[in-house]
Design a protein around this nucleic acid. Sequence first.
RNA 1: GGAAGGGUGGCCGAGUGGUUUAAGGCGCACGCUUGGAAAGCGUGUAUACGCUAACACGUAUCGAGAGUUCGAAUCUCUCCCCUUCCGCCA
Length: 426
Amino acid sequence: MIEMLDPKLIRNNPEAVKKGLKNRKAEASLVDRFLAVDEEWRKLTTEIDELKAKRNKVSDQIGEMKKKKEKADDLIAEMKGFSSRIKELDDEQRKIEERLKAISLEIPNLPHMSVPVGINSRDNLEVRTWGKKRKFSFKPLPHDEIGKKLGILNFEQAAKISGSRFVVYKEMGAALERALINFMLDLQIKENGYTEVLTPVMVRPSSMLGTGQLPKFEEEMFRCRDDELYLIPTAEVPITNLHREEILPAGSLPIKYVGYTPCFRREAGSYGKDVKGIIRQHQFNKIELVKFVEPEKSYKELEGLTLDAEKVLQKLGLHYRVVELCTADLGFAAAKTYDLEIWFPSENEYKEVSSCSNYESFQARRANIRYRPSRDAKPEFVHTLNGSALAVGRTFAAIFENYQQKNGTIQIPEALQTYMGGISTI
RNA sequence: GGAAGGGUGGCCGAGUGGUUUAAGGCGCACGCUUGGAAAGCGUGUAUACGCUAACACGUAUCGAGAGUUCGAAUCUCUCCCCUUCCGCCA
């Protein structure tokens, strides 16, 4: 049965779990509801197990007697109807399990003890910045206007072929997007030791369950009409599911993947938000880092993963800040999250280009991903982490804004020039 | 789109109602043997849950679910998945 949190943790430390839930503004009474149903389930399970033990024993006896050509009619008569009683209890048990599962699915992950307690996103903590805001001798334009003027971003044609929240990249715009993808991939593969994967972008419902998009966030995803397939909202889904239902052998951790995929999001409920430009699109490109690690190392690995993502911004020379999300702003499955935010001069605002999270065993439980600590040891759940490195479209927009010149051209960051055929200006 | 075949332990693979508490093999671990190794021989080798201080014990799991039966890997039904061939196609 899928458990979101370790049931033993809830049984043994209900007060600690409640406190964690309160801190992230989740319903703490979930704990008491869970414990009540859990108790019911365990009582019934013990009873059922005893009945089944008797059934198995008597059936064996009957088999033994038949083998010896003895009459077993009395025993068979005695057992008539026995299984139907078991079946009734089995049905009851199944109903209880469904209730237990429904409650479990509602329980979010617990914040790590290092996460600052807060009541909303204003309590997020800026942990460091890199670089400085550029000083402009002219009024910086928003990225979409720059793109339109240069004729390399076209929103009208995108709307014609696909509707709002889509964009067509042209000429050096398309080339820049492509350069960013290759640059980001190469960096993680060659310098940070990640294994490259190129996965399907359409997945089954079972994969969406594995990483937690289903059942809660169904309305956020695009689904095929005639096939049971969803378009992925992030590469986290196919990559984390690579090892679903597996027991990874001792010594195989950490496993580090980097993958490029387009991502698809319906953005239901975001009407009116980020309507201009390419900040919030139904389809966007993203490079994703995913790690499978040993539990005791996962927080060290989170720091490393965040630095791996930051390195992209540093090489591109983009000023950014690292924000640690407070308990109230954490995503449903995350225990701790750092966001990377780039400064956008046209709005004098920082925008998220990466979110790096430690899920601890939360996803591993759902997706049943385990490992062996040593050769003969019992399997344990891995810890999973992932982070964007980076959202390509937003990085593209940030380059437009931060590298724009007074004459309307855009400088290409040095690190990208070899990926752009050596040119230095658009 | 059409047709066929198949899902059994870490892997291969037997198994059509009761010593199958899943044969046998491979792999792996330990031991015996050896100067050392190989071979050979022997022993062991799933997961989850419950109950336990622990050992032990119990229950479930042969793709999933339901049915028949005292008893199902095995019989019946429904579904899922995989493979192959034909057709179409980048």
